[in-house]
Amino acid sequence: MKVVFERPKSLQATKTHYCPGCGHGVIHRLVAEVMDELGIQDKTIGVAPVGCAVLAYNYFDCDMQQAAHGRAPAVATGIKRALPDRVVFTYQGDGDLAAIGTAEIVHAAARGENITVIFVNNAIYGMTGGQMAPTTLVGQKTETSPYGRDPQIAGYPIRVCEMLATLDGPSFLARAELTDVKNINKTKSYIKKAFEMQLSGKGFSLVEILSPCPTNWGMKPKDAVDWVKNEMVKVFPPGVFKEPKEG
């Protein structure tokens, strides 16, 4: 019998603490599959954020550091500069990366720091219970925007890929959506490309993944996926924003 699907060996057998239908589980698995396929598990060091994915160090089967809120790109910089022949990635949510850690992500990108960033955008703070995120859509209701995000009060969502694409440092920037089989496979291909950039020394790579948060959006898992497909992609268009020129 040929194996069509099994747990990748870079992912531990531990059950995750994520809610039913949460995108983190899929993204963890995709990163682990890429680590397996590239044969880098043994030389990879991951950096876990503060937020829902804080316990990522219990799930990936590779060396891990847990970083202070927003500081994962700085921590990853320290690791990569100390051990330049290892593979270093950060795994960050939207609050971590696009609010409290804005300086760290922008400057890691500007330096062309040779690390890979997995950026999970679900337009809300999950771990703290559903507060407004820097990527919360205009009109979206959260615990701290109970009447819907009002630009007069709370401004507008940040498009991280577009913002970082203005810099010379990044080698690969792409946004994917965790909505269906085709797009999940596309997400994986972006993640693989991002790690390949690092392995060939091309510098900073980031994949932003639009991901469902059924619990804090107050939706059923299927409805949350549909909301990503119908609402989030309008504000955050998927695609490749930066990649090396051929040749």
């Binding site: 060091i45 970083a67 202070a68 500081r71 700085a74 921590v75 910089t77 320290g78 690791i79 990569k80």
Partner: peptide, 15 residues
């Protein structure tokens, strides 16, 4: 803030 967190990463990497 970034500098001390780079220290954290490098210290954790054993140098």
């Amino acid at each position: 803030v970034a500098a001390i967190n780079m220290v954290y990463g490098a210290a954790g990497a054993g140098v």
